[in-house]
Amino acid sequence: MIRRQTPSGPAQALADALAAEYAAIFAYAPIGVRLTDAARTAARRAEAAHRARRDALVLQLSAAGDPAPADKAGYALPFPVTDAASALRLAVEVEERTAAFWRAALPHTTGADRNRALAALTDCAVRATRWRRTAGVNPVTVAFPGRPD
């Protein structure tokens, strides 16, 4: 008997979020290198948070019997990171982009899975706000975190 699969939507949504987490972890390496002091510590913490989300997602997907996409050796950054300013700009962008993937997972999830997706979206949005403040970007908030423009 073939096990009744959950619709391909949820699995795909979570697989997409996982790919976004891989890319975020990748991006935080060059970001951290260009930052110092408190900002560098914040980058390390952010990277650790994304690693934790990645690990939880891999577990979640494999527990459901869904394929987890593999990490890639490298990810194209939207612009080169050459100094602290571009590092902060990339950190904001990484959090905004990752937030969008978690937001997209919300309609495809229910119960504990949706709460996890919301917690991830919220964490990304809060980190984006912190990075904007560190970068001197104003305003530090957006009205609809994760919503495509």
């Binding site: 949706r114 919220t122 809060v126 984006a128 912190r130 009205a143 609809f144 975190p145 994760g146 919503r147």
Partner: peptide, 19 residues
């Protein structure tokens, strides 16, 4: 169909706490 909007509102309010 309402989850994404509500998620954005919840996340926005969290960022307000931070701001």
């Amino acid at each position: 169909e309402r989850a994404a909007l509500l998620g954005s509102i919840a996340a926005a309010r969290a960022t307000h706490v931070e701001a």
